[in-house]
């Protein structure tokens, strides 16, 4: 019969270090996308600024009822133009799509493989000993 694994105990400083490390990773992953977004937002704002000049309900394609609702919501054509002209860009970059697919699938494959190895250790200790 194989002896059960006895883990080392972790000191308080090690616990603090591990907790802080997780938090640093979380904040980093929240901040990184901003680097990609800053440039895109500046371009979009510049484009929107050009389009909002002399906007009218007609030029914005709003019918009579839509115009009435915008006015009730406190918007005039120039203010509403910012929202109406703000559009998502759904152009697909094939390289980025492939990278994303590989990352997501690779992550799950890695996790399932390592988990299976660890699970066998758990089952062996639980049922063999």
């Amino acid at each position: 019969m194989k002896k059960n694994y006895t883990p080392p105990s972790q000191g308080i400083f090690g616990q603090i270090f591990d907790t802080v490390l997780v938090l640093v990773l979380v904040y980093a992953s929240l901040m990184v996308p901003l680097l990609f977004k800053a440039e895109a937002k500046a371009e979009a704002a510049a484009a929107a600024a050009v389009e909002t000049v002399k906007a009218t309900w007609e030029s914005l394609g709003q019918n009579a009822i839509q115009q009435a609702q915008w006015i009730k919501l406190g918007y005039d054509p120039e203010k509403a133009a910012t929202l109406i002209n703000s559009r998502f860009d759904y152009t697909i970059d094939p390289l980025m799509l492939i990278i994303t697919i590989v990352v997501v699938i690779g992550y799950f494959l890695f996790m399932l493989k390592v988990s299976d190895k660890q699970y066998r250790e758990v089952i062996a200790e639980k049922f063999d000993n």
């Binding site: 992953s29 990184v32 990609f36 998502f88 992550y107």
Partner: peptide
């Protein structure tokens, strides 16, 4: 579609944590 950078960044977090 629209949040690709966030998707990769968050996946990077979970991969590093793993």
């Amino acid at each position: 579609l629209g949040y690709g950078a966030s998707l990769l960044s968050i996946m990077a977090f979970y991969i590093l944590a793993s």
